[in-house]
Design a protein around this nucleic acid. Structure first.
Length: 879
RNA sequence: GGAUGUUUAGCUCAGUUGGUUAGAGCAUCUCGUUUACACCGAGAGGGUCGAGGGUUCGAAUCCCCCAACAUCCACCA
């Protein structure tokens, strides 16, 4: 296709697929075909639970902009793509789907093997969809290194990590209170609980008539398992009871022995100041239970709620009832026996619910696998918590080069605060989709790591929390535990981006795993982004049906437009809004670039493409200087991860400097045979560099234009280097010319002179400025639409119909056909004079302030003097 | 209850270590079919930077306090 065949508007969809496969086939997505300094990014693997949404479009735009920039800078770049099996969420989703299709209990009806097969089928289909979507987004990742959190290689890494941690005594099996989802029949971690406000009833009562202390609860049925009442140690009301044990009969299997204990954690001013302790069904109470045990003053633990959500045999007459039924029965009994001390009170309560199964989380004592974050690692002399802290503060082992930097910085504080409060991590899940706990049992024997030889071994039925495998993502993707070349070359990774919502879930665990397994940080820089919201500021969610499918957007506006729309206005850590006008603005920019190229390529001799430009005119010098500045600025902004501002700077240069000014001037210059070639060279040079600068943000359109006049792929082009075209003087002079032209246009607009009419003008200025004006005669004539034979004089006696305006040191007189009302003119002029006077007065005041003169830096003072002088000159010309 | 963030033009947002008369995109208004582009061009209007104090020669920017909104954490029985 030659340039004059370039269609009038850029039609994204007719190029994108073809361009992507050209990139892919080139092999340059794979670092093995690149040279230079290694640079690596691991793609946060999307969950196979669904399809990609707008948030993924943002993530892909961010990552791809970064890797394309780095690749253009000549680095050996790899972006490793992948997907996440998302253990529990995926199983939950498939079970929901099966139940919607009529199945009552998928686990019972299908059994482990068949259900896992069903889930795998779903996951594989979803995975394929996701991978094709990533391609649609133009992401330049290395498909030969594609990873999956649940493939065999990652399983090897997971098992090895588990074994090492087990042998270091960090992973242990313990009987403790866990978060239990009855509906999901599994534990979940603290991070997977969502607190929902719900109405609840607070009951205030005594266990029995002769029990001396009143307590309150919203969960009366759990009181069947109470074994203590806790009060504040200094609470005078209850001093005398501390240490005593009371026997009460609440209808449980056995009478309860309630010991009155002292605990600092009890707030004496809240409620009755006494707390019924249910060690088996409350995490807080369980801690008290452990504390009492350690103190040598143990209390009992009685489990009255079972894994099926029904009351256990321990609950005596309540056994077999659901939690709700038991609650009603217990309250009825309290009422009958007159034990309620107050009317039940309706309150709003935060109830912990399962993120995935949506039911209320029960606290139950169970034997599970745990990761201890506080225990000292034998070979290291510090704990996982210490490692996690070091990595974000002093750098690992105090080595500042091994420090993770988070952008924006404020998330570091949140991270550290969380690290300090981290509790042991419950690793085991009772769901089936996921890495199985790598532990085998035979009678009393237990083996960890790999399946042992011999008969009769049985593997632990539980699976691992999905974040255990995600945590090792930065290095499991590179072949760990083998000592691969990739691992050596690309770890620690350079950069990662993620949403703020997974800072704790993922970032923290990657730091944990990487520092533990490799003694390395997982990445040097972490960029945290917010979520995309709709025009009303609401989060996009599937249930609200306000979700936008990025593929639809790509279909309608093109991938480049979508990328621009999610990147513009996105600042680190902050949420951003997304709406149609943004994509339209993106699409318009893409199309503008297309038409700029169309014009350049149809008006120049493209065989000059590889010649170095030699600036001749002021405009030439100016545009090259601006290009140099822009390129440096974009580099700087990208190094600071300021994507939005980088695009803004690019847009300003492309649209305003190049299209609105230089292109229009180039038409004048091209008409002059002596300047045609030099102008062509500059047009080509600037266009070429614009394509490189824009490529990270709008890869498709830039690549399409690139191949119109270049060999090879822009994908592996070179980022503009400093070329010595910086020219502050030319920039300043050109600004003067611009001001003059804008000033004349202003006069036309102000006096409503029709656009077609060429203005008759007299410029009055000092002798020294005359040659300059002569030099730009053609440009001024064309851009300001002025008769080319305008007069330049040192003095002039205006005619009655003339109007004038002062622009810098030049007074412009325009001849009008009708005489303008002089009174109106006078008013206008006086207004301008008044403004100048007040400005001069204000600057004068500052400049006569001794403190300002002595304390402000010299450049500020000089700048202000300069401004004042200019204002005074203008004032002189006006009056 | 604790923490963090946000509050700047009609809307969405920038505003770099405090320093000229606070910017952009979109929207609005006026004009325009100049052969790159109406997904465009030229021009214009629009802000006492949430309120109140303070520091400073100088504050949108730093400090204090208040308010509204958002998010995260904890969760009180």
């Amino acid at each position: 296709m030659s340039s004059n065949e370039m269609p009038k508007a850029y039609e994204a969809k007719s190029y994108e697929d073809e361009i992507y496969s050209a990139w892919e086939q080139s092999g340059f997505f794979n670092p093995d075909n690149l040279t230079g300094e290694p640079y690596s990014i691991m793609m946060p693997p999307p969950n196979v639970t669904g399809v990609l949404h707008l948030g993924h479009a943002l993530e892909n735009a961010l990552m791809d902009a970064m890797v394309r920039y780095q690749r253009l800078c000549g680095k050996k770049v790899v972006l490793v793509p992948g997907t996440d099996h998302a253990a529990l969420p995926t199983q939950a989703k498939v079970e929901m789907m099966l139940m919607e299709a009529g199945m009552k209990n998928p686990r019972q009806e299908l059994g482990r093997e068949k259900l896992v097969a069903k889930i795998r089928e779903f996951a594989e289909a979803s995975r394929a969809t996701i991978l094709s979507q990533i391609k649609k987004m133009g992401t330049s990742c290395d498909w030969s290194r594609l990873a999956y959190t649940f493939d065999d290689k990652r399983n090897v890494a997971v098992n090895e990590l588990f074994r090492r941690m087990f042998e270091d005594g960090l992973i242990y099996r313990g009987h403790r209170v866990v978060n239990w989802s009855t509906k999901g029949q599994s534990t979940c971690s603290d991070d997977e609980i969502i607190y929902v406000e719900r109405p609840s009833v607070l009951y205030t009562f005594k266990y029995s008539k002769d029990f001396p202390i009143t307590i309150a609860t919203t969960r009366p049925e759990t009181k069947l398992g109470d074994t203590a009442v806790a009060v504040h140690p200094t609470d005078e009301r209850y001093q005398k009871y501390i240490g005593q044990t009371f026997t009460v009969d609440v209808g449980a299997a056995k009478p309860l022995l309630i010991k009155v204990i002292a605990d600092e954690g009890v707030d004496p001013s809240f409620g009755t100041g006494a707390l019924g302790v249910t060690p088996a069904h409350s995490p807080v109470d369980f801690l008290m239970y452990e504390k009492q045990k350690a103190n040598g003053n143990p209390i009992e633990i009685i489990q009255v709620i079972g894994q099926d959500g029904r009351m256990t045999a321990e609950a005596g007459s309540y056994a077999g009832l659901t939690v709700e039924e038991a609650r009603a029965k217990f309250v009825a009994r309290l009422s009958e026996q007159g034990l309620l001390e107050k009317e039940p009170e309706e309150i709003v309560q935060n109830v912990g619910t399962s993120d995935r199964f949506k039911d209320v989380i029960e606290s139950l004592p169970m034997t599970q696998w745990w990761l201890d974050v506080q225990k000292v690692i034998p070979s290291r002399g510090k704990s996982l918590r210490d490692l996690m802290r070091e990595a974000l503060t002093t750098g690992l082992d105090g080595d500042i080069t091994k420090k993770v930097t988070i952008t924006p910085e404020r998330f570091t504080k949140l991270y550290l605060n969380r690290v300090e409060n981290l509790r042991d991590w419950c690793l085991s899940r009772q769901t089936w989709w996921g890495h199985r706990i790598p532990v085998w049992y035979r009678g009393e024997e237990m083996v960890c790591g790999t399946a042992p030889e011999g008969e009769g071994w049985e593997q632990d039925p539980d699976t691992l929390d999905t974040w255990f495998s995600s945590g090792s993502w930065t290095f499991s993707t590179l072949g760990w535990p083998e000592k691969t070349k990739d691992l050596q070359e690309f770890h620690p990774t350079n950069w990662i981006q993620m949403g703020s919502e997974i800072l704790y879930l993922w970032l923290m665990r990657m730091v944990l795993m990487s520092t533990y397994a490799l003694d390395e940080i997982p990445f040097k820089d972490a960029y945290i982004h917010g979520v995309l919201r709709n025009e009303q500021g609401k989060k996009f969610s599937k249930s609200d049906a306000n979700g936008i499918d990025p593929l639809d957007v790509i279909q309608e506006y093109g991938c480049d437009a979508l990328r621009l729309s999610v990147l513009i206005g996105t600042t680190p850590g902050n949420d951003a809004r997304y709406y149609k006008e943004k994509v339209e603005a993106g699409r318009n920019f893409v199309n503008k670039l297309w038409n700029i190229s169309r014009f350049v390529l149809s008006s120049v001799d493209t065989s000059l493409v590889s010649s170095m430009p030699a600036p001749v005119t002021l405009a030439d010098k100016w545009i090259l200087a601006r290009l140099e500045f822009t390129a440096g600025n974009i580099s700087k902004l990208l190094e600071q991860f300021d994507f939005s501002l980088a695009i803004e700077v690019l847009r300003e240069f492309v649209w305003t400097d190049f299209a609105d000014w230089y292109l229009e001037i180039s038409k004048v210059q091209q008409a002059d045979a002596s300047q045609k070639e030099s102008t062509d060279k500059i047009l080509l040079y600037v266009l070429k560099n614009i394509l490189v600068l824009a490529h990270p943000f709008m890869p498709f359109v830039t690549e399409v234009i690139w191949r119109e006049f270049n060999e090879g792929l822009l994908l592996v082009g070179s980022w503009p280097a400093v070329s010595g075209f910086a020219n502050a003087e030319a920039e300043q002079q050109f600004d003067g010319l611009k001001e003059l032209i804008v000033g004349i246009r202003n006069i036309r607009s102000h006096y409503k002179i029709e656009p077609k009419k060429l203005l008759q003008i007299v410029f009055v200025t000092q002798e020294s400025s005359r040659t300059e004006l002569e030099l730009y005669r053609a440009i001024i004539a064309t851009l300001a639409r002025v008769e080319p034979d305008f007069i330049v004089a040192t003095s002039y006696e205006p005619a009655l119909a003339d109007v004038s305006s002062v622009i810098r040191d030049i007074t412009v007189f325009v001849k009008l056909e009708t005489i303008i009302d002089p009174e109106k003119e006078k008013v206008q002029k006086e207004k301008e004079i008044a403004q100048l006077r007040s400005y001069i007065k204000a600057t004068q005041e500052k400049l006569s302030n001794q403190e300002f003169l002595s304390k402000a830096p010299a450049t500020i003072v000089a700048g202000m003097e300069q401004k004042k002088r200019e204002a005074e000159e203008k004032l002189a010309l006006l009056s």
